[in-house]
Design a protein around this nucleic acid. Structure first.
Lengths: 175, 175
DNA sequence: GAAGATTGAAAACTCAATCTTC
DNA sequence: GAAGATTGAGTTTTCAATCTTC
């Protein structure tokens, strides 16, 4: 593999680091982050941006869903009875309450989800998935999982994947 | 540390995995991703969302900047002469051309950046950073780097950080 | 008064023109 | 006609009310 290949891993990371996507963290030549942290940080941002763009565009063209919308459907599919309260959909940090509300609006319009009021607490609203929603969600999740396996994890060893799990545990503990 | 602590690392990841943020990748109990990949994937998304929210809100309240805007300033600070062409600002994948254009609009309004035409090619436009822009950028970058070190990398060992670099190289090669 | 959910208005982002220069 | 940059229009996301029920 020659040094001029467009997509060699080393080049990808070097290019990313040179362009400092995500906040070039060195100032006046003095790196505000140690070099190894800088490389790890830049790679993290580039990897996230890359895989996200890939999933977003594939889900959109293949299923008419955004990653966020599929997040919501996935939660509903995983739930016993296929229903869950709006506020619980927002828990987990990735989606705000109002965003959930609007995503469910859109899914409801397409007949993929329905709302119903919560018997035990009339403030609450249940979202539950329809058969059509479940069918679409399962297909979209299969595609997404395949993509994640092939484009994200394919190049990693079992050990590296296991280590990632440990790393995220540690990182999430500090956030 | 008891099992009921709100922020233990294990709980954070378990919670994230249970809520499947980012697309619960198991369908009807059959995980579409192997368990270790699933955990690594969910952790990756949760970690990115967490640190991003932290930086976004801190930069906004402390410096009136978005992460994207600081990206642009950082590139300019790092450049010799403090100037770079608009199209080069967009390279690297994280920012589209039109987004760069609008971010520079906003920065220019605040007097942090100026535009000038490129002598050798009149299609081109240089963005260059002003003294005020440099000053703000340096402060913001220092804050951001500190945050990344303390909130993201503090819990990781040197070896883990080194391994992350390798992992991102591999992942970026596949994207 | 606090929690659950929605809504209006503003900000951020993307996509497809558009305009200018090569 | 292609490359560099901007703009208009539409969409998505957020923020701060708002409304209802506890």
């Amino acid at each position: 593999m020659s040094r001029t290949d467009v997509n060699s891993p080393e080049q990808a990371l070097d290019r990313a680091a040179a362009e400092c996507p995500g906040g070039g963290l060195s100032v006046d030549g003095v790196p505000a982050l140690p070099a190894d942290q800088h490389a790890a940080w830049v790679g993290f941002l580039a990897a996230h941006a890359g895989i996200t763009r890939l999933l977003e565009s594939g889900l959109s063209s293949g299923f008419g869903l955004s990653v966020s919308a599929l997040d919501v459907l996935a939660r509903l599919v995983g739930e016993d009875g296929g229903q869950i309260r709006m506020s619980d959909l927002a828990q987990g940090g990735r989606l705000s309450q109002s965003r959930v509300s609007r995503i469910v609006d859109a899914l409801e319009l397409r007949g993929l989800v329905e709302r119903s009021s919560c018997p035990s607490d009339s403030r609450g609203v249940f979202a539950h998935i329809t058969p059509a929603g479940r069918e679409l969600a399962v297909e979209a999740l299969r595609w997404q999982a395949l993509e994640v396996r092939e484009r994200f994890f394919a190049a990693l060893s079992e050990d590296q994947i296991a280590e990632l799990r440990v790393v995220w545990s540690a990182v999430l503990g500090g956030l």
